[in-house]
């Protein structure tokens, strides 16, 4: 079939958008889980959970949509990443399952509440770590033979990916704490204000390590950033500016700004990552065009996605709108 549009680029845009939505949106509710056991008391935990309960599964929609779209549009990514990250994928799913059911059962539990607390906290932290390790593994690249992953079972687990994993835990915790600043008042909010600067510090430390380390191990990235100084240097500058905004707004005790600026940090580091790697989607060998499925299949599914993405976006917006404002401290049964 004659291609009039390059659907591969359109699909890269869709998947890229879906993943970004996922990271931004599920990040802050995973963050609640990461901070959960450090909360000052049980009432604060109730409030934390209530602050994300109506929206978290809508947030995870983007992960499922992105995952399914990946198999359809870029099957090579699916068939290399999942075998390469085999154990990591299991941990991610187990984590997401445990925290997911904790949402359901903690509300219904009386005597067994502490079990669901731990289920929520451990599940969220493991899921966040696994996602960070996936990003690290993507930066590292994958050993392939033909179109098949040929590395070992634990190639994804290196000191570097452990650092990116921890970075993701810190980052999601930051999104979580700034979300709490925006959605709560009183004791919980004050606690979240105190948490935010150290979490930001931890995240920036990991960034520094990644930024120094990556160009050293990957000549392609080095070329991108250092061979001719280009417009992409705006991205890290904006990331740092967002970090500054977080600190300043926390100091001024502003409500909404810390969260918005934290999302900015994530958005710009995500763009920075794409700027380093694209068009390589299964580094070091394969670009988005190598990994793409047939034009016919991309087109067939595109029709469905063009229909459903606006609906999911609309539904999401509506849910957040209904749920705007502060979460009350009282009112939990």
């Amino acid at each position: 079939m004659e291609a009039t549009f390059d659907l591969t680029v359109i699909w890269a845009g869709i998947i890229g958008f879906g993943l970004m939505m996922y990271v931004l949106m599920d990040g802050f509710d995973l963050g609640q889980g990461i901070l959960f056991m450090f909360a000052p008391n049980e009432a604060a935990r109730d409030q934390m959970m209530n602050s994300v309960a109506p929206v978290w599964d809508g947030n995870e929609t983007w992960l499922v949509l992105g995952g399914a779209g990946l198999l359809a549009a870029f099957p090579l990514v699916y068939s290399v990443f999942l075998p390469a990250l085999y154990i990591g994928v299991f941990l991610l799913l187990a984590g997401l399952i445990f925290r997911g059911v904790a949402f359901e059962f903690r509300f219904k539990a009386k005597t067994s509440k502490y079990l669901w607390n731990w289920s929520f906290a451990a599940g969220s932290t493991i899921a966040a770590f696994a996602q960070g390790a996936v990003v690290g593994a993507y930066i590292q690249g994958f050993e392939t033979e033909g179109f098949v992953y040929s590395g070992g079972p634990l190639d994804w687990l290196t000191p570097f990916t452990v650092i990116t994993g921890l970075g993701m835990v810190a980052g999601y915790a930051l999104l979580g704490s700034t979300w709490l600043i925006m959605k709560t008042e009183g004791e919980v909010q004050e606690w979240a204000y105190k948490l935010t600067p150290p979490l930001l510090g931890a995240l920036l430390t990991v960034f520094a390590i990644v930024c120094v380390y990556t160009p050293f191990v990957d000549p392609y990235v080095q070329e991108r950033w250092f061979d001719n100084i280009s417009v992409i240097w705006v991205i890290p500058a904006l990331t740092l500016y967002c970090a500054y905004l977080v600190l300043r707004s926390v100091k001024k005790r502003q409500d909404g700004m810390p969260f918005v600026a934290s999302m900015g940090i994530f958005l710009f580091s995500y763009l920075g990552l794409l700027a380093s790697k694209l068009p390589y989607i299964v580094p070091p060998k394969f670009t988005i065009w190598d990994a793409a499925s047939s034009y016919n299949s991309q087109l067939f599914l595109l029709l469905g996605f063009l229909f459903v993405i606006p609906i999911v976006l609309g539904y999401t917006t509506w849910t957040y709108w209904i749920f705007r404002g502060k979460v009350k401290a009282t009112g939990y049964h």
Binding site: A68, L71, L76, Y78, S79, F90, S297
Partner: peptide, 19 residues
């Protein structure tokens, strides 16, 4: 993807959109 990657890759043009 994790356990049947050869199958997934081979059939992705069909299975991907359908799933």
């Amino acid at each position: 993807g994790t356990n049947w990657s050869n199958f997934s890759y081979a059939t992705a043009n069909f299975l991907g959109p359908v799933l």
